[in-house]
Design a protein around this nucleic acid. Structure first.
Lengths: 264, 264
DNA sequence: AGATATTTGTTCGTATGTATT
DNA sequence: TAATACATACGAACAAATATC
């Protein structure tokens, strides 16, 4: 099982080739990861330089770099050039985590029904968790975001921007949610709603009812939050989600039908 | 083949260095990804060989390989050696997605309270979605898994194995869930419960009540599923989660207290 | 501001491993 | 078994970025 480094000592005159012992492809990635754990490295800490890593793991520069690139792609390290540069332990960012998870669902078909089945459960709970935790800065951010869709859109671009802002409203709420799992789950669903093909089609059509209704629910939600009325917060958010689902799925059917007609 | 040699000939008097146009570090990764989308490649399809990629993207083998390794780390492609080998488009596996998402939560502290806040919402909904969808094979798998913890454990290892099997029971249910988002969310929570440090400590202690109670809830759940009694399915699963949370968090407190005492 | 040193980033040539035929 | 076609790995040199003086 891949001992691997038993020789390395002398290239044994007669054998000019095989300069180093060979290793399983992705083994080095795992090795570096384990080494990081063993050393107890924390976010911000720097890994040894490439030359040192070559010595530690007994593989060539190219192999080390491939492994570092793989770790970078997972968001585990950050690579910097220049003096004092190198590979630094990094906390996976939320954006990266959302992107990586998005890849998983890309080839599986997620429907609006699936998304809203979760939103109806999670958003009310998320909102309820905020009671008593929002300060003036939060309310200002929320109201500023709502101002983006205070009036009817004057173009397709503005229509779409309003939909994005409506989702950002929920994202700001998630910022203040004390449960990282709940906050992430909500934000991932927002990301799906921003990027899914069906949704992009929906946002390209005029949706006056969605805007008006969504806005009025959000106004009422903020009132309930200010009053610290947890029950009402939950109820308003739940109804908000139900109505959003209804309107979105109505449009979805129209678009799917149109698509099928064009296809035929 | 050996394209790649379009320069090599003459360094074009005025520009001796810079043999190729320079690119941003991770740009090639994005380029390849976009190229894959443009070509409409599907899972199973093969990317061009390295030599061809070198020609297409105008970078050297090393750079191409670093990019491919990065894509492989994200689970987007699979690399194979030998004739007919190369890079193949791959669907991100659930295991990989769970691993990558686990990295995100690794450095954030997730508590049992956070996990169960979600499980109390999701598991009942997940179970309800199964009504009328389970066949004999499912029931057999579920009962076989339950047999692992039908009796009291005789060792620490068996204790732990029983906890894992209890989680597997819920994983088997998730297998049959038609909502991919819901199924994934539940399974990710199971993964956290299997790997979190606190949980590992808990599983290393004797927990007779957890086993007996969990098992009886699961028996009742299966009965409700067979009867297609959605309301009861929901209710039983919810109570199961509440009780599991209670017992787990009780143990958690004991362990945290012990840890603090040892620390002092 | 400019020169310099440090460290990653990229390239090329070549050798080796491995699966297919 | 041998030939082939591919990825995988190595090493040395050079390019670019960036911190420090």
């Amino acid at each position: 099982m891949a001992e691997a480094s038993q020789d390395a000592a002398k290239p044994a005159i007669g054998a000019p080739s095989r300069r180093r012992a060979r290793k399983r492809p992705d083994l080095v990635i795992e090795q570096i990861k384990n080494w990081i754990m063993d050393q107890g490295l924390q976010p911000g800490d720097r890994l040894p330089q490439e030359e040192a890593l070559i010595a530690i793991f007994g593989v060539s520069r190219g192999t080390i770099r491939e492994a570092l690139k793989a770790l970078e792609a997972q968001g585990l390290i950050r690579l910097r050039t220049g003096p004092g540069g190198g590979a630094f332990i990094d906390r996976v960012s939320e954006e990266r985590a959302i992107e990586l998870l998005g890849n998983y669902f890309f080839s599986r078909d997620v429907t609006l029904k699936d998304i809203y089945a979760l939103r109806k459960l999670l958003e009310p709970e998320m909102a309820a968790s905020l009671v008593g935790r929002l300060d003036d800065a939060h309310y200002r951010r929320l109201e500023k975001t709502m101002s983006v869709y205070s009036g009817p859109p004057r173009s397709i671009e503005e229509e779409r921007a309003q939909r994005m802002a409506e989702l950002d409203f929920h994202g700001i709420l998630a910022d203040a949610c004390p449960n990282p799992l709940l906050a992430f789950s909500c934000r991932f669903l927002h990301s799906l709603l921003k990027n899914l093909a069906v949704c992009r089609h929906i946002y390209a059509t005029s949706q006056p009812e969605l805007r008006r209704q969504g806005r009025s629910y959000q106004v009422e939600l903020l009132a309930a939050l200010r009053e610290a009325d947890t029950g009402r917060v939950r109820k308003v958010m739940y109804e908000h989600m139900c109505e959003a689902e209804r309107l979105m799925r109505e449009r979805e059917m129209v678009i799917v039908r149109r698509f099928l007609r064009e296809d035929a």
